[in-house]
Simulated scan of single mutants.
Amino acid sequence: MRLAGFYLFALGVALLPILFPDNYFVIVVGASAGLHVILAVGLNLLMGYAGQISLGHAAFFGMGAYASAILTTRFGWPSLLALAAGLLATGALAWLFARPILRLRGHYLAMATLGFGVIVHVILVQATQWTGGPDGLSGIPALNLLGWRVDGDEQWYGVIMAAMLLVVWLTLNLVDSQVGRALRAVHGSEFAAQMMGVDTGRAKTQVFVISALFAAFAGSLFAHQQAFVSPDSFNLTVSVELVTMVVLGGLASTFGAVCGAIALTLLQQGLVVFEDYEMLIHGALLMAVMIFMPQGLFVGLSQAARRVRHRLKRRQPLPST
């Protein structure tokens, strides 16, 4: 069923540019939603499946973005090599950070990850020689994929959607693997998981690093797509938005994270027309969803669809004899 849902989702992604050709909103907002999906799916592995709270996920997003930006603009590295170096550096730092911090639980873990995000943001602002400081870093070259220069909106839509589908596919396989079962055991009861022979420290470290790598991957794509990065794109507000996407879509559900990321991206774009009332309507809608669909949009809509199908079956006349 998960693979069937993935193939259906991939088909919809591929058909969008065909059904809406030359539609700026679909292409540009779709690419933005794709980046948010990568971030939300990775964070959902950490929060939804492993049960570990993170309020500093935007830090890894920014590390991937600035690694690609600095290496390509300051040192003239090829974009793919800069992307790989950013992933390697982010993964190593995430592993070092995970070993001590994941011993914490609950709000202590949340505060520690929040502090990590603040530290990274301060470094991005203060290290003006490398990052450009508050003004950011511009002139980032286009992504070059083995001689193919990605510099148009349609091309970026294809690249980001391909990357998004790859991340979703990897996540679905990871969840169904031994690692995924260990993460669910840790979420249910860490003590019980240890009694069953699960190395809980290793499992939490692995998912933390994977989640960070997904975020850094999205950050590198973001930097090359925008050709500009600034610390404001990776602050605490972005981390809170990512958590909102995961909770809004539904914890411990890969397609829930996908649904939450797309829904919040479209909501932010649609509310721009309301200007001064944007945040008020935004908050009211989120509250309504969490009140009437506490398990998230994906689970809530799935349950509503099942109830409708059940009622329709009950109304069908009995076959005549």
Rank of each mutant, 00 (worst) to 15 (best):
L266K: 04
F222G: 02
V118T: 06
L109F: 10
R181M: 14
W156I: 02
A67N: 07
D199E: 12
V258A: 02
L8C: 10
W148D: 00
A94F: 09
I27E: 05
T244K: 03
P100I: 03
G48S: 08
H36I: 00
G12M: 03
A162S: 13
R74L: 01
S32L: 14
S32Y: 13
M279T: 10
A59I: 08
S177E: 00
L251R: 15
L43T: 05
T113E: 03
S302Q: 10
R74G: 00
G42E: 03
Y277T: 11
L87T: 05
G270H: 01
L146V: 12
S302I: 00
I70N: 08
S302R: 10
L81V: 13
G86P: 12
H57I: 01
L114H: 06
V209Q: 03
V118F: 13
A263T: 15
S189T: 05
V299E: 12
W95M: 13
A110P: 12
S211H: 04
G180F: 11
S54G: 12
V258M: 04
A185E: 02
L251V: 08
G132H: 01
S233M: 10
Q52R: 12
L174W: 11
F292N: 02
E154M: 03
A67W: 06
T254V: 15
M1F: 08
S138Y: 06
L104Y: 05
V229M: 06
L11F: 13
S320L: 09
L109R: 10
S138R: 13
Y7L: 15
F255D: 03
V258H: 02
V289M: 02
L248K: 11
T73C: 08
L236W: 11
T237H: 12
V118N: 02
G64N: 00
S211R: 01
V168Q: 04
H36W: 15
L165T: 01
G5P: 06
V289F: 11
G152Q: 13
T237S: 07
A261H: 05
P78K: 02
L143Q: 10
F116G: 08
I262A: 11
L87D: 04
A215C: 06
A40L: 03
H310W: 13
G64Y: 01
L143H: 05
G115A: 09
F75S: 09
S239G: 07
T321Y: 10
M63E: 00
V229L: 08
A69V: 09
F60A: 02
A112G: 11
G158W: 12
V240H: 10
G152E: 12
L170W: 13
G115K: 08
E278Q: 15
V273L: 15
F25A: 10
G256N: 03
Y157D: 06
L102C: 05
M111S: 07
W95I: 00
M63A: 11
Q52K: 10
Y49V: 09
L264S: 04
S320W: 07
F222N: 05
S138V: 07
G12L: 13
L145A: 04
G152M: 01
P100E: 03
I262W: 03
A203I: 00
L93W: 06
C259K: 01
G188Y: 09
A31E: 00
W95D: 00
G300K: 06
W169H: 15
L183A: 12
G260Y: 07
